[in-house]
Structures are given as structure tokens and as C-alpha cells.
């Protein structure tokens, strides 16, 4: 009787210790099972395509009033992009052409094209929470950052894997980011952009993912500059086409005219 009691205690203790071990190492097991860098690559593969054509709206809310701009965008890889703003009247006909790290802007009111380079890239784009630099970001996350697993969190009613991204080189604008990834679908729900010293600067949220061909693409993205009060910039993608043929003239400076 006593022997059986001792065995029971031993078994219970072993079970308890095993559970405790599993609990403490659960996250590591999760991390070992899913390579964070592979997750990031899968996320990039889902978002980036050879070519893309998007029609959408850009809502810039500065806390006092909101401006809505409609636009059409053609992208080729990470290097070339052309955007045409269609409304409101004030912005109608404004064009932006990005080729690698250079960005040209054409405004019909001045009938001039302006190269936005160097330090000008750090200015706010049309009063939004994005800088031109954010716009011209031409590196895939998986290429620019090393990912490590941080935690599991629930976001938008989905269990997400939180990855900490650390820049490979010391010239990357944001040295650290955090991304919330749904590892089932390999989609991002949220990104946080940090200053070198660790202060949280910007936040990007992704909403309403929908299946477009083989890809899941968000219908809405909200950018917030967390150092400013009550400002947000919302991108709404109304129509998206992947792997479309884009005429070469769209990525030529000759398009930057009336």
C-alpha cells in the first residue's frame, strides 16, 4: 500500500515536472518548429509579386480634418513603381515615379518634375504619416532584417507569432521592427517600427485580408505616427491585380508630364 502510494506520488511529480518543463519551453518549441526567418520570407512571398496594379484611396487624417485622395499604382518588383493621383482636384494629375531609391514627383499645377532625393526623402509625404522614404522602401523585410521569435499573441481574433526584426546593416532606417504574423496564412496583421534607442515610432496595421488568386492581400492598411497625436494615414485598396503586363512607358520619366 505504502509502495503504491510512493509510486503514485512519483508519477504525479514526474507528470507535474514534465508539464512545467513543457510550459516553460513551449515557446522555444514553437520557435524551433517555425523558423522566424522562413516565416518572414513566406510573408514577403505573399505580399510581393513581379508586377502589381492597384486602385485605391489614401485617407490622410491629421487630427483636425481628413483628406481623401484616390490613386492608381503600377509596381514592378521592389524597384519600380508609378502612382497617379486622380482626386481631389488639388492633387489630380500628380504623379510619382519611383525607380530604385530615387523618387520623382510631378505636379500639374507647376508643370514641373521634382527629384525627391537625399534628405527630402525624409519629409512627410503629402502631409501623411509616411515619409517619402517609407514609400520608396525597396527591400523585402526578409532581406533587410534578421527575425527572432518573441511571443505568441492574439490579434484580430487570430493567434499570431510576434517576430522581432533586427536590421542586418547599420544603415537601415528602422533598426528594429516587430511584426505580428498569422503563421497559418503567412500574413502580417501589425508592424511596429522602433527608433534605434528602442522608442516606438510608427505602427502599421493590416485589415480585411482577401484571397486574390493565390495570394492573401489586405484591403486596408493604417499607418500611425505614434509621436503625433490623433493622426493616421489609411490606405484602402479597392482593386488589385497581380502579375499584369505594365507598359515600359509607365516607368519612364517621360510619363511625368500633363
Amino acid at each position: 500500500m505504502i509502495m503504491e502510494y510512493k509510486k503514485l506520488i512519483l508519477r504525479t511529480g514526474f507528470l507535474f515536472l514534465s508539464l512545467l518543463f513543457l510550459l516553460l519551453n513551449g515557446q522555444n518549441v514553437f520557435a524551433k518548429e517555425l523558423d522566424p526567418q522562413k516565416i518572414l520570407e513566406a510573408v514577403d512571398d505573399n505580399l510581393w509579386s513581379n508586377t502589381k496594379h492597384i486602385e485605391g484611396r489614401l485617407m490622410i487624417d491629421n487630427g483636425r480634418k481628413e483628406r481623401v485622395l484616390t490613386w492608381e499604382n503600377w509596381m514592378e518588383g521592389t524597384d519600380r513603381a508609378y502612382t497617379l493621383y486622380k482626386s481631389p482636384a488639388r492633387e489630380k494629375g500628380t504623379k510619382m515615379l519611383k525607380i530604385q531609391s530615387k523618387l520623382w514627383m510631378y505636379t500639374p499645377r507647376t508643370d514641373r518634375k521634382l527629384l525627391i532625393a537625399g534628405h527630402l526623402l525624409r519629409q512627410s509625404m503629402m502631409g501623411s504619416d509616411l515619409s517619402y522614404e517609407d514609400m520608396t522602401e525597396d527591400k523585402k523585410l526578409s532581406a533587410a532584417y534578421k527575425a527572432t521569435f518573441v511571443a505568441k499573441e492574439e490579434l484580430q481574433k487570430t493567434e499570431c507569432c510576434v517576430l522581432l526584426l533586427t536590421a542586418h546593416d547599420k544603415t537601415t532606417t528602422y533598426q528594429t521592427r516587430k511584426v505580428w504574423v498569422d503563421v497559418e496564412k503567412m500574413i502580417v496583421f501589425k508592424q511596429e517600427l522602433y527608433a534605434k534607442g528602442g522608442k516606438l515610432l510608427k505602427e502599421i496595421e493590416y485589415f480585411d485580408y482577401r484571397l486574390l488568386g493565390k495570394r492573401l492581400f489586405p484591403r486596408k492598411m493604417i499607418f500611425r505616427d505614434l509621436l503625433k497625436e490623433n493622426t493616421k494615414t489609411t490606405y484602402i485598396f479597392d482593386a488589385i491585380e497581380f502579375d499584369v503586363d505594365i507598359p515600359d512607358k509607365y516607368f519612364s520619366q517621360s510619363i511625368l508630364k500633363r
Partner: peptide, 15 residues
């Protein structure tokens, strides 16, 4: 208050 700046490599920093 918060101050934001860039270091010599263009990296954003704030404190």
C-alpha cells in the same frame, strides 16, 4: 518631450 533625429548612417533615433 520626445526628440527624434538621425544618426550619421541615416538611422532614426528618438529619446
Amino acid at each position: 518631450t520626445v526628440l527624434k533625429w538621425r544618426d550619421r548612417h541615416g538611422v532614426v533615433d528618438a529619446r
